[in-house]
């Protein structure tokens, strides 16, 4: 099937905040779903004050009709943490440098070791967990979570940059009996993940509770405006989450 047999409808109402775009590429009997997902921040300057609006966490969800994802690997696949255990026995000397290493050692049934002259044996067990913290993690049922972390494992204040840089997100295939394929992707953010920060510069605004309270309320007004804008023309938004970008690819 040719690529031009699909029609694409992206909808990114908050142009500075997020962009979602799909492309479908046929590969033999299956299709690669390529995705570009970018996040940015919006700036609002008013009466000598500046506010930065962004999101700290988002979810990408796919709704597939007439097709399904295959078992091929998907973008952001995160394996469960690997634990490597290093179990070793160390002989420690009681005298510096010259304890006779030819002392008789007796290994008990418990696995402990006794040493004859002036020394002791310590059994050490080191466990090490290795895990990569991916900024985009594939979840169950065709979902992806976007939540970059700092090196201290704290979430970043704003997601900014390419989350999925125009690469294959997953592979899909036509469902048995399905005659028209459609792929809908939506980027959802919870209300608490929309962040507004006042850029106070060198003013003492931060130490003034007057402006802390005022900034918080201006932030809520901006968030409400963003939620309203994201909802306009969209559908199925809950009270506490909003869809900031969507893209639909439908077979003609």
């Amino acid at each position: 099937m040719e690529e031009q047999n699909f029609s694409l409808t992206p909808r990114n109402p908050l142009t500075e905040l997020s962009e979602l775009r799909f492309e479908i590429e046929p590969v033999e009997d299956e299709f690669d779903l390529k995705c570009r997902l970018k996040f940015g921040t919006m700036h609002y300057e008013y009466r000598e004050r500046e506010y930065i609006v962004g999101v700290s966490k988002a979810h990408l969800r796919l709704v597939l009709e007439g097709c399904e994802t295959t078992f091929a690997d998907v973008f952001g696949e995160q394996a469960l943490a690997e634990i490597s255990v290093d179990d070793s026995v160390q002989i420690q000397s009681a005298l510096k440098g010259n304890v006779a290493l030819n002392a008789n050692t007796v290994t008990g049934a418990s696995g402990e070791v006794d040493i004859g002259i002036g020394g002791s044996v310590v059994r050490t067990k080191n466990a090490k967990t290795q895990q990569k913290l991916l900024p985009v993690v594939a979840g169950p049922n065709d979902t992806w979570k976007i939540a970059p972390k700092t090196i201290f494992n704290k979430p970043e204040k704003f997601v900014e940059g390419s989350a999925i840089p125009s690469v294959r997100l997953c592979t899909i295939r036509r469902k048995q009996g399905g005659n028209r394929m459609s792929v809908l992707g939506e980027v959802h953010v919870s209300r608490s993940s929309i962040k507004v920060a006042a850029n106070d510069g060198n003013r003492m605004g931060k130490s003034l509770s007057e402006w802390q309270n005022k900034n918080a309320l201006v932030g809520l007004l901006l968030k409400k405006a963003i939620q309203r804008e994201a909802r306009s023309g969209g559908k199925s938004n809950s009270a506490n989450a909003v869809c900031i970008s969507r893209c639909e690819v439908v077979e003609k």
């Binding site: 209300r191 962040k195 509770s209 802390q212 309270n213 918080a216 809520l220 968030k223 506490n240």
Partner: peptide, 9 residues
């Protein structure tokens, strides 16, 4: 509801 209201007075 579900808002960040830290450090307010």
């Amino acid at each position: 509801r579900f808002t960040d209201l830290r450090h307010l007075d």
